[in-house]
Computed example of a mutant assay.
Amino acid sequence: MEKNIPLEKALSILPIYRSVIWDVFTRELEEHQFAAITMLHVSERIDPLLDTVTCVFGQIYDEHNRYMMNLAYTSLEELSVPLVPVTKGIAIMPIIGEIDTHRSQVIMETCLKKETSLQLSYLILDISGVVIIDTMVADNLFKIHRSLKLVGVEAIITGIRPEIAQTVVKLGIDFNQIKTEANLEAALLKIGFTRPEEHSRTHLSP
């Protein structure tokens, strides 16, 4: 498993052990002239034991593969919700695709895991890449917002497209509890972030 040997190749080796074991017993039979009934009793014990070993080997191999696949899937999930630091205390998380219950949990865990190390005060969730916002998606966003608020991080949602906004209004979803801005630039300006060159020009102007 550690050398990434395919299962069928690994299993093909097991009959070799079965053959070696029976060769040993055959030689013992010839040398010590065991009765045939003795060999029959031996076979009744050895064959089921070898079959069990084969079955257990397959189960362990399957469990190892599932573990490795889960690790890879978790890594892909984390990559699907990147958290990008902008400056001290501010970060952006662009979200693309569907926000189902499982993914919202991944988003929440990623945010909470990194908010301490980055000492975040603001997190901008850009959902311009989210195709659909329904009551379930909105509820998941509210949960993320509440979780961040509990640890002192203010979440701002940006990128709600006009067609999405119409759907939200039709569904009666109330986003008043969450701060929203049209785009990233508006959100950054709202929390007082300016680019270094703009800050320099402000100080240089008469």
Rank of each mutant, 00 (worst) to 15 (best):
K170R: 08
S19W: 05
T101R: 02
P48E: 07
T87L: 11
Y73F: 12
S43W: 09
V84Q: 01
E63Q: 12
L40P: 06
I96S: 04
T101L: 04
L171G: 09
I60M: 09
I92A: 02
S121K: 13
A36Q: 05
K143R: 06
Y17L: 15
N183C: 09
S43E: 11
I46S: 04
I60E: 14
Q119K: 07
A155D: 00
T110I: 12
N176R: 06
I37C: 08
V106F: 07
L14M: 09
P48G: 00
A182F: 09
A91F: 00
W22Q: 08
L120I: 12
R45C: 07
M69G: 04
V151Q: 02
H41P: 05
S43G: 13
S128V: 14
H199S: 12
V24M: 11
L141N: 03
E154T: 07
G89A: 13
K88Y: 08
I191V: 15
K88D: 15
R195F: 14
P82E: 00
F34N: 03
T116F: 11
V168A: 03
F175Q: 10
T87A: 04
K114H: 10
D100P: 02
A35S: 13
S147P: 07
I191Q: 10
L50S: 02
Y17W: 11
D100E: 14
I157Q: 03
H32K: 14
P6W: 11
I95S: 03
L204Y: 09
I133Y: 08
K3Q: 06
H102V: 04
I60V: 15
M68Q: 12
R195Y: 14
L188A: 07
L188G: 00
S43K: 14
R103Q: 05
N176G: 07
V151D: 00
Y67A: 07
D126R: 01
Y17S: 08
H203C: 08
F34L: 15
G129Y: 06
H203A: 15
I16V: 05
I60L: 11
R45P: 00
I95Y: 10
V24L: 11
L125R: 02
V153I: 01
I160Q: 01
N4K: 06
I46M: 08
M68F: 04
M69E: 05
F193N: 09
K170H: 10
S147C: 06
A138C: 04
